[in-house]
Simulated assay, not measured.
Amino acid sequence: MATGRRIKFSVLNVVAQPHPPGIYRSVFERAAGVGVKFWGDQYVALSPISSSRNGVFTGRIAVWTQVDKNSDVIKLDEFEQLALRDSEVSLPNNIGLNSRIFEYAFNESKHLMYVEQQNEDKKYLSPKRAELAVHRILGQLNFTDVEEVRVQIVPEADSVERVLSVPRLKRVEMRVFRPNPDELDDQANALLDELQEQGIQRTDIALAKAPGVDTIVLNARNKLLAKIAAFNGYVRSFGRTEGGKTIEASTKDHAKVVSVEADPDKSTIAQARYVAGE
């Protein structure tokens, strides 16, 4: 029976270099249970993961407010401030406040993470916050079997076209990380070979409009670089309206969202697993 409610998932690209079989499961197993500060006084952690089925495992992201026990509290009725340790408030060490939990599923072969945007309690985790949370968690781990683990938002398929379509395009910036070679077509692999031959892991490209030209028009090579950058870095553009106002656009602002109708007979995690396995 249709519920009318839809479940939306942000999509994150998690890239390990190198990426031998089983590396993504290993990375997330090591990341489980490690609480990390990631936004203001908010902390985040990943749960232990499930077993893999058809190349997909699942888990949960917990976000909470961590109380600093050396901080002060205020009695609102008396407008009196005092040290937390001198107040009547006592919190066990394993308690976080204002908590919310979001389900996720991870496709190992595609190294894509599908993160619930709004849980059943109507708490929200935006694509950018999800990206930052997972980046902070994985970034504080010490890996000996991989050189790099990188996390980024997967943009919409037309994100490059939308970013480059700003009027009077005067500047284009691209950050390109070396992608996994099995993701690319022959043309893109040729560009990847150039990076590898020079020992380059990341390249930053800035294209500025020449004087007397109305707008930048990218050639085929730079369009291909932009396509790679959108999924392995970012593309940012700057244009100008007729009134002279600067317009800025980025592929990070066009996050891919997968939306499915909620099935009352299935849990959110089961539906996340289905989405990730498609």
Rank of each mutant, 00 (worst) to 15 (best):
T3F: 04
R5C: 09
K8I: 12
S10M: 00
V15H: 05
A16H: 04
H19F: 04
G22F: 07
G22D: 11
Y24R: 13
R25C: 10
V27N: 01
R30Q: 14
A31W: 05
A32Y: 00
G35L: 15
G35I: 11
V36G: 08
V36S: 05
K37D: 03
W39A: 15
D41W: 06
V44T: 13
S47K: 08
S50V: 08
S51Y: 09
R53L: 10
V56T: 09
G59S: 09
I61V: 15
A62W: 07
V63H: 00
W64S: 13
W64I: 06
T65I: 14
D68C: 01
K69L: 06
K69N: 10
N70L: 13
S71D: 15
S71Y: 02
D72A: 06
K75W: 01
D77W: 06
E78T: 15
F79G: 01
E80D: 08
Q81F: 11
A83T: 03
L84G: 05
R85L: 07
R85C: 03
E88T: 14
L91M: 12
I95L: 13
G96N: 12
G96S: 04
N98W: 10
E103F: 00
Y104T: 03
N107G: 11
E108R: 14
M113Y: 00
Y114F: 15
Y114L: 01
Y114E: 08
E116S: 01
N119E: 09
E120Q: 12
E120Y: 10
D121A: 15
S126Y: 04
P127S: 11
A130H: 10
L132M: 11
V134K: 06
H135A: 15
I137D: 05
G139A: 09
Q140A: 09
L141K: 06
F143T: 07
D145K: 11
V146P: 07
R150S: 08
V151P: 05
V151D: 08
Q152I: 10
P155C: 12
V166T: 07
P167A: 10
P167G: 04
R168C: 04
K170S: 13
M174F: 09
V176C: 06
F177K: 02
F177H: 12
N180I: 07
N180D: 12
P181F: 08
E183L: 14
D186V: 01
A188L: 00
A190P: 00
A190R: 05
A190T: 11
L192I: 01
D193C: 04
E194Y: 10
L195A: 04
Q196P: 00
E197M: 14
G199A: 11
I200P: 00
Q201L: 08
T203L: 13
A206R: 15
L207P: 02
A208E: 12
G212F: 03
G212L: 10
V213A: 05
V213G: 00
D214M: 09
T215N: 09
L218D: 09
N222T: 13
L224G: 06
L225P: 00
K227C: 02
I228R: 13
N232V: 11
Y234R: 14
R236D: 11
F238S: 11
G239Q: 05
T241R: 02
G244D: 02
T246F: 00
T246R: 12
I247G: 03
I247R: 11
E248V: 15
D253F: 08
K256I: 03
V257P: 03
V258E: 13
D263C: 05
P264W: 04
K266M: 04
K266D: 02
S267M: 06
I269E: 01
A270I: 13
Y274A: 14
V275D: 02
